[in-house]
Design a protein around this nucleic acid. Sequence first.
DNA 1: AACATTTTTGAAACCGGTTTCAAGCAACAA
DNA 2: TTGTTGCTTGAAACCGGTTTCAAAAATGTT
Lengths: 339, 339
Amino acid sequence: MKTVTIQVIAEVAKVSKSTVSRVLNGSAGVRPDKRKAILDATQRLGFQPNVVARSLANGRSMTIGVLTQNIGSPFYDAISQGVIVGLQNSSYSPIFMDGQWERTSEITAISALLGRRVDGLLLIGGVLSEKDISRVCKDRPTIVIARQLAKLKTPCIFVDNVDGGYVATRHLIEHGHRRIAFIQGLAQHQDAMDRFAGYCRALKEAGIELNRRLLLDGDFTATKAECSVTRLCESKLKFTAIFAANDASAFGARLALYRRNIRVPDEVSIVGFDDQMESAFLTPPLTTVRQPAQEMGNLASQALLEMLNGKAFKSQLLKGSLQIRESVARLKNRSSKQA
Amino acid sequence: MKTVTIQVIAEVAKVSKSTVSRVLNGSAGVRPDKRKAILDATQRLGFQPNVVARSLANGRSMTIGVLTQNIGSPFYDAISQGVIVGLQNSSYSPIFMDGQWERTSEITAISALLGRRVDGLLLIGGVLSEKDISRVCKDRPTIVIARQLAKLKTPCIFVDNVDGGYVATRHLIEHGHRRIAFIQGLAQHQDAMDRFAGYCRALKEAGIELNRRLLLDGDFTATKAECSVTRLCESKLKFTAIFAANDASAFGARLALYRRNIRVPDEVSIVGFDDQMESAFLTPPLTTVRQPAQEMGNLASQALLEMLNGKAFKSQLLKGSLQIRESVARLKNRSSKQA
DNA sequence: AACATTTTTGAAACCGGTTTCAAGCAACAA
DNA sequence: TTGTTGCTTGAAACCGGTTTCAAAAATGTT
């Protein structure tokens, strides 16, 4: 019951293993009768090429290293899913390592991936500097997903968070809102900062002064957002709308308002960011900026495959699209005068 | 700029590559001075062992094959995350392939994994028969997650869906409900059938006759559930509670009720199944049966590692725990009489 | 000092493929 | 018929490690 190698096939088909290799890879012509004998043998013995040996021989492991971030966020999960799907019909398989949003962890993870001789790298989010990335990833084809690198030396696929934040906020402004609270994301997180920048830009454009007291603590979790919005309500500070840095925060906000019997959108409007599955089923369905997460993963993996075929790839900036649902209402004139 | 192999290290340290291998693996004693020279060299040259070569040599690829199901469900995503985390501090890495809930796809995926000589397999969900599994996985250590196999020849980790369905339904009954609609899951899906069985058992135990008209079409999506519940409302059929086969369906149900201005839980109570992150932030927070998804993935990967170390593993049946929140209310006596 | 025992070491085989190289062979043109 | 060309083919080297085996060196014993 020994394992079936090309050597075995060779013996059965009465040829050399070189020839077996050739028909299996179609790398050279082989006389039809021998080819048939070989094919028959592989079929009959259920031969399955050893990818490991093959990798060693030709230097290509046929694996893609994926750096994920264990944050249990639907957004990042969807990206991973997209990567898996995108690689599905290629002969490459993804191998995952967690970076934990932490520099040394990420470097360790990437090194491990490199030790496995992955042919390319997909970095989902993370905190590595551009210098770190180019140093640790060496010359391996790499694409960064859901993150914008300043220099863009390493190709990335990401949505324009500033624009997204701007669009979301402007949507509220267009509905007459001027007292718009912003639930911030994690302080050091670039996405959070960008969305905030978009918020600021929209306010400025509309001539609305930024009110620091309407800037709420947040860390992308619903719990934190709920807490912050509750506090905001207690503060008696007037506000008519909330822009949450992500959908999870919007959920938290919605619950906080529910607890105080504040109606959405009649009394307070909400806009989120991400458009995760559940958002369309919030009550009321959440208006939010859609980030095409799965598509990004898909796109990135496809692009990486092309890079492996020698094609160049340039960074892609995607625009988030506003999904208008029912969590935003036109402001009643009652409070529209008091800017 | 050639790659650093143990051969290079050997030359630099003036020893044979056998010796280098020995200190790197600690597989045999080496004279301290030589050991130091070798260690220095590896350090200085930044040597990183080629996992592929190592795998070929000793027959262990240090990878775990994970069969996932691309259904974009938070539940399955969480399991995958759990697997990644569980393998984090081992020297094994997970390699993912999608099965698409489809027999031939799953078999293809597993074969591909086997071609990569994975040391063990983790099968998340899926539709493969026990015979299929043992045939295709050969003798490789395998654990099935989130699925109960009848014979239990292959070890599995799963929650007791019948019990979960029973607990959920009984909770509603204990609150005085007797007209309890059930949003079914995918027809051919075992989990769905089991939860339904639990529902039936609870009804029977309480002497409530099963009303087929209260069995709603469902496929585990919120959309379908919303549609079914809407239809139920239109049918004028009386019901005071809904047990949804999963949380997504509960979301759909909740939205359908919201649209018709039916208050939850005052007029209709809802219980879900899964306890995904967002459920605690539904308005009102959803009472649901918690499945410890991430823990299951974690547990399974740890268990698989132990199997690889020769320890035996027996299937684990977990109990879902009812998370009591605010979507269930005691039935007002108004309708409690009409059974 | 001589011998037995244990430890350290390098050469070589091996894992299962791919690829180079040159030889073998058939077909073709002169 | 002979020389040239082109296609098939097998032997051998190679990828980068691990492991066996026997020789060499170190250590212990008498």
